[in-house]
Computed example of a mutant assay.
Amino acid sequence: MKRYTVLDLATFSDDRGSLTVLDNVLPFPIARTYWIYGAGGQTRGGHRHHVTRQALIAISGTVSVYMDDGIAQATVQLDKPNLCLLVEPKDWHTMTFGENSVLLVVSSHHYDRNDYIDQRYD
């Protein structure tokens, strides 16, 4: 049983390059978008949420995302800009960044520190 969803986003390529589209594929409305960069060799995250859902896309480089939903654990390698990992509120996650990586994060809710759960599953 597959526990984590990775979307293969529509990509259009020709001699001029590639264009990847994030359009009408997320299972939530977008409230917040941000990106993390300059974190090569670092691990960030280490939390889950009460309500926020997220979509993670490594638009440059490689980001390894460790996921734990309290039942199963997995590491998802985001190494192509057309791969989009859905992170549900229950998913405790960390992101480990390769050199020169840029991670785009799309969230279902605006930032609220009270939505964060920093404690791992036992």
Rank of each mutant, 00 (worst) to 15 (best):
S101E: 04
R53P: 00
V87P: 01
R48T: 07
L86R: 04
Q42V: 11
L104Y: 00
Q119T: 13
Y111V: 11
D69H: 13
I57V: 14
G70P: 11
K90F: 07
P81M: 13
H50C: 05
S64I: 08
A72M: 05
V105H: 01
D68C: 10
D91L: 04
D115V: 15
P81S: 09
K90R: 06
H50G: 12
S64R: 13
V63P: 00
Q77F: 05
V102L: 08
A55S: 13
S108D: 11
Q119Y: 13
I57K: 01
S101R: 02
D79M: 08
A31F: 14
H110I: 11
D91M: 03
K90D: 10
T52N: 03
T94M: 14
R48K: 15
L86F: 10
S101D: 04
T96A: 05
A74H: 09
T52Q: 09
D69Q: 15
I117S: 03
G46H: 07
A55Y: 00
A72L: 08
R48G: 04
S108F: 08
D112M: 15
S108V: 11
R48N: 14
D112P: 14
G61K: 05
H109L: 13
K80M: 06
L86V: 11
A39Y: 05
S108M: 13
T75A: 09
H93C: 09
T33D: 13
F97P: 02
S64E: 15
G40I: 02
Q54P: 02
M67D: 03
V87M: 00
Y34S: 11
K80D: 07
R120C: 14
I59K: 02
H50V: 10
V63I: 09
S60Y: 03
T94D: 15
I117P: 05
I36L: 12
W35F: 15
D69Y: 08
V51H: 11
Y111M: 06
N114F: 14
T94R: 07
V106P: 02
G46M: 08
V105D: 02
I59M: 06
G41H: 15
Y34H: 14
V51C: 12
G45C: 02
Y34K: 12
R44T: 10
G38D: 09
S107T: 04
T96F: 02
T62Q: 09
A55I: 04
T94I: 09
V87N: 00
D91T: 02
K80R: 09
Y66R: 12
S64M: 10
L86P: 06
L78Y: 09
Q54V: 00
D91F: 02
L83M: 10
V65F: 07
A39V: 05
E88A: 12
L104D: 00
T94W: 11
H93N: 05
V106D: 02
T52V: 12
G98P: 01
